[in-house]
């Protein structure tokens, strides 16, 4: 059976959820061979094996942390040469897309980004994408070279599928371009203890209607009752009420949770672009004409300062 390369996104050996989703999709196309790079690379093997990786190619070098993108491209290219896979799958993070694009160019292949589904087709993998702020759904194929496809978080279920997961050292020779962009300092993000925005099953967002940084406590309280991640509109981020890393939309994160709750958000096209594929959408907005109501499964026309705390209390009561 053909092998499919899966690029592993991990933090010091802890595999992030989107990579496990990729393994589910990869198994539809062939036998997943994972590529894990950098500090803790070998520690990823057990988890990857549980989810279907037949092999885990690992390599650690200081270059992965010290220089931007290119060392990882060099390594993925080495893995491509070693394996001759039927496809290369990469998580659709900002960095993932850059790595995938440069790899595609080097191996003379086409690239598809931000797939939300993948199926095996007669002529290679068929990728589903959601475009123009999710107003269209397209199906596309790479027609030259090994298909390189980046896949968005929450595009498939994580499935247990035990496989060998044999660890093999990947031989990597860095190109002379590998050290072009130096990372001179790195400040890790502080953990909030809440789920990762792009990975969360539920996202509770606040917009301009929240009217102040301190009021985001109301949004956070609801999120915590639901075990949700917190999102924000650009208006709330630009006002300095919430960090940009939590922005949902075209220039923020694109999310596709089971449930999205928009509070005090009007639903501008650029915001929709990042949340329209959510399975269930709920909004609280005091303006009955707000465009967000066109998207909702359930909407409450009302003041979020009344509705949201009442909702939070009610959930607390119901949970007992």
């Amino acid at each position: 059976m053909a092998e499919v390369l899966v690029y592993v996104d991990h933090v010091d050996g802890a595999v992030r959820k989107p990579t496990l989703e990729l393994l589910t999709l990869a198994r539809r196309l062939g036998e997943p061979v994972a590529v894990a790079l950098g500090n803790g690379a070998a520690d990823t093997a057990a988890t990857l094996a549980e989810h279907g990786a037949v092999k885990v190619l690992t390599h650690d070098a200081s270059e992965y942390a010290d220089y931007l993108v290119v060392p990882k491209v060099d390594a993925l290219q080495a893995a491509h040469e070693a394996v001759s896979p039927a496809a290369v799958l990469v998580p659709s993070s900002a960095e993932g897309k850059e790595i995938a694009a440069r790899l595609a160019l080097r191996i003379g292949a086409g690239i598809i980004t931000d797939a939300v589904d993948l199926e095996a087709g007669d002529e290679g993998p068929v990728a589903t994408q959601s475009v123009f702020a999710a107003s269209f759904t397209t199906k596309s194929r790479v027609i030259k070279g090994t298909p390189v496809i980046t896949v968005k978080p929450n595009s498939a279920a994580v499935e247990a599928a035990p496989a060998a997961g044999a660890v093999e050292a990947l031989a990597v020779t860095f190109s002379d371009k590998a050290t072009g962009t130096k990372v001179t300092a790195r400040t890790p993000r502080e953990s909030t203890g809440r789920p990762e925005l792009t990975e969360a099953a539920i996202v509770v967002s606040g917009g301009r209607g929240v009217n102040g940084a301190e009021n985001f406590a109301i949004i956070e309280a609801l999120a915590d009752q639901l075990g949700a991640a917190v999102g924000a509109s650009r208006a709330a981020v630009d006002a300095g009420w919430y960090p940009h890393t939590n922005q949902v939309g075209q220039t923020g994160k694109s999310v596709s949770p089971q449930l999205y709750i928009a509070n005090g958000i009007s639903g501008a096209i650029q915001h929709r672009a990042g949340m329209q594929t959510s399975k269930t959408i709920v909004a609280v907005n005091k303006d009955a004409e707000a465009p967000i109501f066109e998207l909702v499964d359930y909407g409450v026309v009302g003041d979020l300062f009344d509705v949201v705390p009442q909702l939070t209390e009610e959930i607390k009561t119901r949970k007992g």
């Binding site: 598809i112 397209t138 959408i281 909702v296 359930y298 409450v300 509705v307």
Partner: peptide, 21 residues
């Protein structure tokens, strides 16, 4: 290097329930 095979307008979401608080 890539080919779009189909492009379909996303079906309009079925109208949800809207209540006034």
């Amino acid at each position: 290097f890539t080919k779009v095979e189909t492009a379909d307008a996303r079906p309009a979401r079925t109208a949800g329930t809207i209540v006034k608080d």
